[in-house]
Design a protein around this nucleic acid. Sequence first.
DNA 1: TAATATAATGAACATATGTTCAAAAGTCAA
DNA 2: TTGACTTTTGAACATATGTTCATTATATTA
Lengths: 204, 204
Amino acid sequence: MELNHKQKNALDFIVRYLREHDRPPTLREVGKAIGVSSTNGVRYLIDALISKGYLSRSPSLSRGISLTDKTMRQHGSLRMVPLVGRVAAGSPLLAEENLEGQIAVDPTLIGRSETFALRVKGESMRDAGIMDGDILFARPQSSAQKGDIVIALLDNEATVKYFRPEGNRICLQPANPKFAPIFVEKKSPDFRILGKVIGLMRKM
Amino acid sequence: MELNHKQKNALDFIVRYLREHDRPPTLREVGKAIGVSSTNGVRYLIDALISKGYLSRSPSLSRGISLTDKTMRQHGSLRMVPLVGRVAAGSPLLAEENLEGQIAVDPTLIGRSETFALRVKGESMRDAGIMDGDILFARPQSSAQKGDIVIALLDNEATVKYFRPEGNRICLQPANPKFAPIFVEKKSPDFRILGKVIGLMRKM
DNA sequence: TAATATAATGAACATATGTTCAAAAGTCAA
DNA sequence: TTGACTTTTGAACATATGTTCATTATATTA
């Protein structure tokens, strides 16, 4: 009942393909992945996996392979009970400007406070581990402490920077030597702090 | 941008079919389910759903329909992901002794695929925007593609690195010039790939 | 009403994909 | 080595499935 190397390989590929595509592979795709040139070779292999209880098949159906309970258990189907509850509605201000949808987040990430999310554009905070395309979570507030990473509205553009007050002006400092700091008057009407960054999420 | 009754019907069916079969339906199956007799009628309908951002398609591919993030968000709920702590030697990755807790995650971030989470230790992937203390989400798999960021078990220690196979050894490459790459024999018993990194979360 | 856009049909087509078969190649025990 | 068994190949085949097109029906609007 043991699987040999090639069978294990094939099963691995099928499981992985399913996860990545939400769709089973074809015989030819399996063959290509594990180095078997004829569809019949693959068929043979898969028949073995079926008879050993790792797979099942709907005959004549395209992409008809499916995983058995046994396989799902071994590869640990961890789909758990969904947690019901709403998390962190965006602030109305940003909801209007930048509405991309709602994102659910674990409360351990952002606590109980009101929160909004923003997608990062550009590389200016790279050295703080904030990359282009990342999603930031921020707590809305109109002031900040020295050293906070803030989301600021500057000339109708949201920007993410370190917050460094200096006398009666403010230095918005990037975390990337290729970018220059921005200085604004504290009382400038074109400048406003929207919130303080408290978390980050990235899809890779 | 609203969906009419028939479109909503079709979308519902596709989501349901996917959930029940782990495989997208064919055009003919959709047509039969919603009462459209020609495949082209279904195609028309699905094109509408695609242009409205609910579905996507891999052209010419059998069962090539897939759900967009938007649709997953609407139809999916929060998912719980196990947080893996220290991985004990020999024990399966997701054995209870290895688990530190559960994290709720938006399906947008990790899709429907099986996922585990791991807390990052150290600075070795700094230049990839992966910082000390970050939580990584990974898809469990025992092999990987060149260039993937993987979580690997090396001498009973979980480590995060770029995966670069070179002949019969593997280079585990940090994203930080201060760290040296690690080389391991492909068949080394002390080495094992645990999964591929697909997302990241940071609390600040 | 006419005109225009939207939906759906039916049939033909192209190709993606599973199935089958005979033969070759490899494996393993007697 | 022989012989039985397993595994793979290659090619032909059948069918499942996406694509295209001309046409008709249905709604919407000027």
